[in-house]
């Protein structure tokens, strides 16, 4: 799981152009939205694309997305349970 979390941090930084962050700056339990990384609604859409592209997971329910994108830990657990690639 820890390698998936590291991979996710790197993917998030690259996909969302978080140039002022490194993977080491992101704690596994940091909030991705709000006061954490400060991501916005467009970032949420990019994360949905990332899940589809990299892990074959299609999210269609916005409420579900909100829960999944809480933190790197929560996201990694969801990917482990639902990935198709």
């Amino acid at each position: 799981m820890s390698s998936l979390q590291q991979e996710l941090k790197e993917s998030i930084i690259e996909a969302l152009n978080l140039e002022e962050f490194t993977a080491a700056d992101i704690d596994n339990d940091d909030a991705l939205f709000g006061d954490g990384l400060g991501l916005d609604s467009i970032d949420a859409l990019e994360l949905i694309v990332l899940l589809d592209k990299d892990y074959g997971i299609k999210l269609t329910d916005p409420e579900e997305s909100k829960a999944i994108f809480q933190s790197v830990n929560v996201l990694a657990a969801y990917i482990e349970a639902n990935r198709t690639k």
């Binding site: 969302l16 152009n17 859409l45 990019e46 694309v49 592209k53």
Partner: peptide, 11 residues
Amino acid sequence: GEQYPSPAVFV
């Protein structure tokens, strides 16, 4: 192919 449209580009 594997290229996905990016919401961040679209905006």
